[in-house]
């Protein structure tokens, strides 16, 4: 089918999509920059800094999923979003569990 046969309402807009990608680049660059700046300047205590860079990383991951991978809350994306959420659940269980187990073992035997 020729693109021109598709009604304009359903045809996507290249300019808008290019802006979308650009936003992905800019937001990621800013978030990365912020994280590096925090680590270089060290304005807060270490635990606060750790929390900040972790939060910045999570936000950036969200941004990239949205802008580059086009995962969002639209209905047609439900399966994919569910998959991402389930994966996140599995990862949290595995990583948090492992850290808890291993650190406890080291604390008991260290």
């Amino acid at each position: 089918m020729n693109p021109r046969n598709i009604p304009p309402a359903t045809r996507d807009d290249p300019a808008r999509e290019r802006r979308h990608s650009l936003l992905g680049l800019v937001s990621s660059a800013l978030l990365t920059g912020a994280a590096f700046a925090l680590v270089l300047a060290q304005p807060f205590a270490r635990p606060v800094l750790l929390a900040c860079i972790a939060a910045l990383a999570l936000v950036q991951i969200g941004c990239q999923l949205f802008f580059f991978l086009h995962i969002d809350l639209r209905r047609s994306h439900r399966d994919d979003l569910q998959l991402v959420l389930f994966t996140s659940l599995v990862i949290v269980l595995m990583v948090a569990g492992s850290m808890w187990i291993l650190s406890s073992q080291h604390a008991m035997m260290g």
């Binding site: 808890w100 187990i101 406890s104 073992q105 008991m108």
Partner: peptide, 8 residues
């Protein structure tokens, strides 16, 4: 039995 604390 690998030596983590009882709570785990």
């Amino acid at each position: 039995t690998m030596g983590q604390e009882a709570n785990v």
